[in-house]
Design a protein around this nucleic acid. Structure first.
Length: 662
DNA sequence: CGACCATAT
DNA sequence: GGATATGGTCG
């Protein structure tokens, strides 16, 4: 029976609280030595501290850095005729996204206007040109992706031992719980051991926390927000008034008024944890600002949901802290449709069903109110909790495969009608994917896309998609990708001459590091050189294991699937290497001549032996390291309001494995 | 696994 | 709204 048992909350709706504060009655849990000294309470940890940090006007900031523009220069980033980013100096002129370039310039004639990088026609690389035309170019966000990765890398450096989840190109969540606990134990050594005379042993509450100074740590969200600034409230509380208090202009003012806002409510140990997290977050943000030139805004609170909400309290270049005690008053006036995951259909369904708009409104609706269970089913508990500031979703390190999919897409203002145009755009998109995959492989070689997907929208219809396994080829070339794309195109739009395609998207999905035993051996066999291999439009990987093991099998769905490529090359000079996906060690084999599958088999066997030996080394080393990082799958959390059904473990990995395990 | 949907920046 | 990303549903 943990103090924060979720069941308590689930059933709580049964007896309607008479005191509205009861809705938030888990916000001040008793914290014991057991809590303090446990390291695996996960999302139930009463000392959990999470932050969300996002870059201010990120694309604009990237361009300012790239062009070495002074930080006070108003600048916008353009995508065709649309503003996709407006820096803060430009916002002072009342410029916002949704404005057109024209209007923006009207408001601020000396505005710096930068168009996002584009590929043009068949260019291999994106670039910045001034003659951008949506009919011939496609946008590339690559520069921003790279900058984003730099920032993420610096964050990891700056807060070691902290789980970090990149949530989007310009946002990351931090789980500071672990490093904060260590610091707390170090700073307050009397917490590190249950005192001998403690009445309840480890379940004894901690002694009173020290008074802490929030000075310099960020903006404290007030426990008692000041009343809305304007006296003349529009009838009905309409959307264009800001219900939340306006943040003060500077932190001095904020701090001076803390007392009057009730921020002198008793300090808790969770507050101590928050304050330490704020130190760490501030340090990491400072590093990013001084070393990379990006300002950020962060929110620090007890979970992801609140951290995200808190980050928006004051921007830019600022961080804010939401104490548990400040949660109810911060949450209640918010329009729930602005909350994470309630911005879409679920949110509007709730608004319609109960005819309300704020969190406070929804708090009066119990779990078993008419319509709650029937209309929202599984979501109702999730909603119930989120409204009360409870969110058990975890911050998960997305590990090595930092990106699971790559999408290149192009909207066609003037829909295309000819097959040749389709081919053209597929080629452009393929070129981009090829480059991006190549770049990604510089960081982690052995990245493999499992599938390729083509999306197309015809006229006004909803888009349709087709996918197929992406073939094995060591060299993923534009041609490889384009022909796979062409094939999907045929299945999707056919040869009909009436086609009217207004958007095309080509994607890799299931990108992952090929791990031993997970993918087939092809992934580890890398042709170093080859001669008399004709460069066909669809170069087949000459080491495709299927060809070796089962000559003629056509499981490889590459390109046009023309059979003449299957084992038709009579003589080749090749040499092979095997690169371990885990440590990068390379095994080279001498150059061989071969005339048939038998030779392949020889090479294959030798490499297989080397690989097995090497795998054993990793296996042993893994055993030695066991125990330090086991995935905790026991904690169930619901990252999205969607179903909580668990996916079954993927079926046994098939393929080449049978060649190795005997 | 394949197609599609929901959500977000 | 365009360009991307992720995760869930359902057959």
């Amino acid at each position: 029976m943990t103090p924060n048992s979720p069941l308590k909350l689930v059933w709580k709706g049964k007896d309607k609280p008479s005191n509205p504060e009861d809705d938030f009655d888990d916000l001040n849990p008793v914290i014991t030595y057991r809590h303090m000294l446990s390291n695996n309470l996960g999302v139930r940890d009463p000392l959990r501290v999470i932050a969300l940090c996002d870059s201010d006007a990120f694309y604009a900031a990237c361009e300012m850095n790239r062009l070495r523009v002074d930080k006070d220069v108003p600048l916008v980033v353009l995508q065709w005729d649309m503003l996709i980013a407006v820096n803060y100096p430009a916002r002072k002129y009342g410029i916002s996204r949704m404005d057109k370039k024209k209007d923006a310039l009207k408001r601020c004639p000396h505005l710096k206007v930068v168009h996002v990088a584009t590929y043009k026609e068949g260019e291999k690389e994106p670039g910045y040109w001034d003659d951008v035309d949506t009919n011939t170019h496609k946008v590339s966000l690559d520069y921003y992706r790279r900058e984003s990765m730099k920032i993420a890398a610096m964050f990891k450096e700056e807060v070691p031992g902290c789980e970090i989840e990149k949530a989007s190109i310009d946002e990351a969540f931090f789980d500071f719980t672990k490093p904060v606990r260590e610091i707390m134990l170090h700073r307050y050594p009397h917490l590190s051991k249950t005192p001998p005379g403690a009445p309840l042993g480890a379940d004894t509450p901690l002694p009173p926390p020290p008074n802490i100074s929030w000075n310099g740590l960020g903006n404290l969200i007030p426990v008692n927000p000041p009343p809305p600034a304007s006296e003349d409230e529009p009838p009905d509380g309409q959307p264009n008034i800001t219900t939340t208090s306006l943040p003060p202009e500077d932190e001095e003012v904020e701090l001076a008024s803390n007392k009057s806002r009730g921020d002198d409510t008793p300090t808790t140990w969770h507050d101590v944890a928050l304050s330490i997290a704020a130190e760490l977050m501030g340090k990491a943000r400072l590093a990013v600002k001084t070393k990379l030139g990006y300002t950020t805004s962060a929110g620090i609170a007890r979970n992801k949901f609140l951290a995200k909400l808190t980050a928006s309290y004051k921007k830019p270049d600022s961080q804010s802290i939401l104490r548990n005690t400040a949660i109810p008053n911060y949450l209640r006036p918010k329009e729930f449709q602005k909350l994470r995951f309630l911005g879409g259909k679920l949110g509007s369904a709730l608004a319609k069903e109960f005819d309300v708009s704020t969190v406070g409104d929804l708090l009066t609706i119990s779990l078993e109110s008419d319509g709650m269970q029937s209309k929202f089913g599984e979501n109702s508990v999730w909603v119930y909790e989120i409204l009360r500031g409870i969110d058990r979703s975890e911050v998960k390190d997305k590990g090595s495969a930092l990106t699971k999919s790559m999408l290149a897409s192009k909207n066609l203002p003037k829909p295309i009608t000819k097959a040749s145009e389709g081919k053209h755009w597929i080629r452009v998109l393929a070129a981009e994917l090829a480059l991006r995959l190549k770049d990604a492989r510089e960081m982690s070689p052995n990245l493999w896309p499992k599938t390729i997907v083509l999306h197309a929208r015809k006229g006004y219809d909803a888009g349709r998609s087709k996918q197929a396994p992406f073939p094995f080829t060591r060299e993923v070339t534009v041609d490889t990708i384009a022909s796979a794309g062409d094939k999907l195109w045929k299945e999707l739009v056919g040869n009909s001459m009436t086609l009217n395609v207004s958007s095309v998207q080509l994607a890799f999905t299931g990108i992952d590091v090929a791990e031993a035993g997970q993918k087939s051996i092809e992934g580890f066999l890398k042709p170093v050189s080859s001669s008399s291999v004709k460069e066909t439009r669809e170069p087949r990987d000459i080491f495709d294991i299927d060809q070796v093991a089962q000559p003629g099998s056509a499981t490889n769905a590459v390109g046009d699937g023309s059979p003449q490529n299957l084992g038709n090359d009579k003589s080749q000079v090749v040499s092979l290497s095997y690169v371990c996906a885990r440590c990068g060690k390379t095994f080279e084999l001498p150059t061989v001549h071969h005339t048939g599958a038998g030779d392949y088999q020889d090479i294959h066997d030798q490499l297989t032996r080397a690989k097995l030996e090497h795998d054993d080394f990793h296996f042993a080393r893994d055993l030695a390291n066991e125990g330090s990082h086991r995935p905790l799958s026991s904690i169930s959390s619901k990252p999205t309001p969607k179903s909580s059904k668990k996916r079954k473990a993927s079926p046994a990995t098939r393929g080449i494995e049978k060649f190795f395990r005997k």
